[in-house]
Design a protein around this nucleic acid. Structure first.
Lengths: 229, 229
DNA sequence: TGCGTACCGTACCGTACGGTTCGGTGTCAA
DNA sequence: TTGACACCGAACCGTACGGTACGGTACGCA
């Protein structure tokens, strides 16, 4: 049963209920109601705590809602998972990139900020839990979790960083022929083996200071490879 | 229940049975008997085909053996998984590294060969399936799968590549201060986003030709960063 | 020939979980 | 006040699966 077969995942039921009162005018337009967001946040906590092995009953218990409501809102367990991942994805905000004329320092700072932001995200417990769930679901077909995480993870980073690289090239600060190749190098230098090690259970979580160092080093190397002048 | 509690995972039962006849003298000393290896290979096929969602009954059916025997040999389902991963790990052979005096070309060739070999492994269906299983099990504690894959994956690559880097430095071909940093760069340039994308279900499997190109590019960049002269 | 061992195939058991149903409660709107 | 609605909590159902037990077969060995 696909989630599309359920009217549930449609944004905001048309008739405002008591629980939705107060957000009909002021709420951020979200795919989910306030109460639904609460529930999804509980699911996120559960995923961090126990992976995706939790039962629907456990969600209901932890969120103080009934299983019936969960099934009504999300269709089935997979719909609940999917909604959770999408809810989390909607919360992630990428760092701002400089829009004015690029200088070499500005470019380096933007790249470093981006690298640090990305490392902070992927080393977070939440990201690790979600990526683990997505990876296992990608194995057994039957679910679009992997696709969603892929879109909001590596692909989103790529879409976000490539304009910056292009701008750097246009400003004469970077020199590369193959944009995809440049992105690949950037991703590799930044992430390296950090993510796969964490996903496999290595507990070498870098702290903020280490992340700053790693980011700066990665950008230095990237500029050594692709910088101009 | 840990696998150590079971006498099963001990190498080769002391009394040779009919099924083991013919290997008592000539067999490669393996942790597992011939029949056990057959079973574990079936498990590998199942993992590639359906992820780690298969049932023990499915293994017994596919391997034409009884569940009772599986539990006798491997203790429980997790023991079966663990044995399978260890069996696969024992099959992997790293590429030979040059032992004579290093030249720049020799070093580059060794690094390229290593990179290509590594990319070939991690883009293989088997590696993807095993890494997926290990990643999901790493999430819910309760299993050492992640640890094993970590040891035979990223850590093994590191142990293997670092002596080569050291040799390159000793021969005056490479210049770096932090060995771990150099390895990190190498890993990142070679693997980049390839592995995580495949684990998440992206179907961009590079073929041999692409792998050769990716490896050559990665090594060129690595030598740009760390090469001397 | 008979015993012990290792194994297969199958039936069986307990449980956990996905999903459904139902009675009860609070709230809104007419 | 009454009815519709959304929700909670709990009971319930079917099934799939991990793990065990048992009967039957092949074979080595005394």
């Amino acid at each position: 049963m696909t989630s599309a077969a359920h009217p549930i995942l449609r944004p905001e039921r048309s008739t405002a209920t008591s629980r939705e009162v107060g957000e009909t005018a002021s709420a951020p337009e979200s795919e989910f109601s306030e109460r639904q967001r609460e529930v999804l946040d509980v699911v996120l906590q559960l995923m961090v705590a126990e992976g995706d092995g939790f039962s629907v009953a456990a969600v209901a218990r932890a969120a103080s809602c009934s299983k019936e409501t969960l099934y009504k809102w999300f269709g089935d367990r997979d719909g609940l998972l999917t909604a959770t991942v999408r809810w989390q994805a909607s919360k992630v905000r990428m760092p701002k990139l400089p829009s004015d004329r690029l200088t070499r320092d500005g470019l380096a700072a933007a790249l470093t900020g981006f690298a640090a932001s990305w490392l902070t995200v992927i080393t977070g417990d939440l990201s690790i839990a979600l990526n683990r769930a997505a990876v296992s679901h990608a194995g057994s077909g039957k679910s679009r979790l992997g696709e969603i995480v892929l879109t909001n993870g590596p692909f989103a980073m790529k879409r976000r960083i490539e304009p910056l690289l292009e701008a750097g090239r246009a400003a004469g600060l970077l020199d590369f022929e193959d944009l995809a190749d440049a992105f690949r190098s950037f991703f590799g230098l930044v992430v390296a083996d950090t993510q796969i090690r964490l996903l496999l259970g290595d507990d070498s979580h870098p702290d903020d200071a280490e992340i700053r160092i790693l980011s700066a080093r990665a950008v230095t190397k990237f500029l050594t490879l692709y910088g101009r002048g």
